[in-house]
C-alpha cells in the first residue's frame, strides 16, 4: 500500500461499512472514493488534512450514490441481509460486535455518519461539520440523538441527568 494512504484505508473502510452496512457495497464505495480522489488529486492542497479530504470525498460519493439508489432496499433490509446466512462469512465474526454494528446501523443515516465520524474516527465537531456541509450545531444535535438512541438500544434509559443540562454554557472546544 502506498505510504501516503496506508493509514487511511482502514478508517475509510470503517466509514464505508457504517454508511453502507454491507461488506461488498463498502468495498465498492472505497474503490469509487479512491477513483474520485485520483480524478480530483489536482485540487488537493498538501497543507490540508488528507484524511479529512478523503472522508469528504467518501461522504459526497455515498450521498450521490444514495440519491441514485433511492429506491433500493432500506437499512433494515440491509441489516437483515447482514445477519442472514447469505452474508459473506468474513463479516462481523464476533457476535457481540455484530450487535454493536447492528445497533449503529439502526440509526438514521444522518445520525450514523455523524456518530462514526466523531466517535469512531475522532474528527472534531468542526471538521465533521465542514465535511458534511452542516452547521456545527446540527452535527452536535445529531450526535446527541444518536447517543441517546444507542443508549436506549442497550436498555439504558436516560435518567438522572443534572438540572444544569438546560443551562448550556459555551463549549470550550480545543479542536
Amino acid at each position: 500500500m502506498h505510504p501516503l494512504l496506508k493509514d487511511h484505508i482502514l478508517p475509510l473502510r470503517r466509514y464505508a461499512l457504517a454508511l453502507t452496512g454491507d461488506a461488498d457495497q463498502s468495498d465498492d464505495l472505497v474503490q469509487e472514493t479512491l477513483a474520485r480522489a485520483i480524478e480530483g488529486a489536482g485540487s488537493w492542497d498538501p497543507r490540508r488534512d488528507l484524511r479529512k479530504w478523503l472522508f469528504g470525498i467518501m461522504h459526497n460519493t455515498h450521498a450521490s450514490g444514495r440519491r441514485r439508489r433511492s429506491l433500493e432496499k432500506s437499512v433494515a433490509g440491509e441489516i437483515a441481509a447482514m445477519s442472514s446466512d447469505s452474508a459473506p462469512a468474513s463479516q462481523f465474526t464476533s457476535v457481540h460486535f455484530s450487535e454493536t454494528i447492528a445497533s449503529l446501523m439502526r440509526l438514521p443515516d444522518d445520525q450514523r455518519e455523524v456518530m462514526v465520524l466523531i466517535a469512531v474516527e475522532a474528527f472534531s465537531y468542526k471538521d465533521a461539520a465542514e465535511m458534511l456541509n452542516l452547521p456545527i450545531g446540527t452535527v452536535m444535535s445529531r450526535l446527541a440523538r444518536a447517543r441517546e438512541a444507542l443508549r436506549a438500544e442497550q436498555g439504558r434509559v436516560e435518567q438522572g441527568r443534572p438540572d444544569e443540562s438546560s443551562h448550556r454554557p459555551d463549549l470550550r472546544l480545543v479542536r
Binding site: T93, F97, I101, A119, R151, Q154
Partner: peptide
C-alpha cells in the same frame, strides 16, 4: 465504552475485507 466498542467492532469488520 460504547464509543470504544464501535471503534473495535467497525475496525474488526473492516479489516476482514
Amino acid at each position: 465504552r460504547q464509543r470504544d466498542e464501535l471503534r473495535l467492532a467497525l475496525s474488526e469488520a473492516a479489516s476482514t475485507i
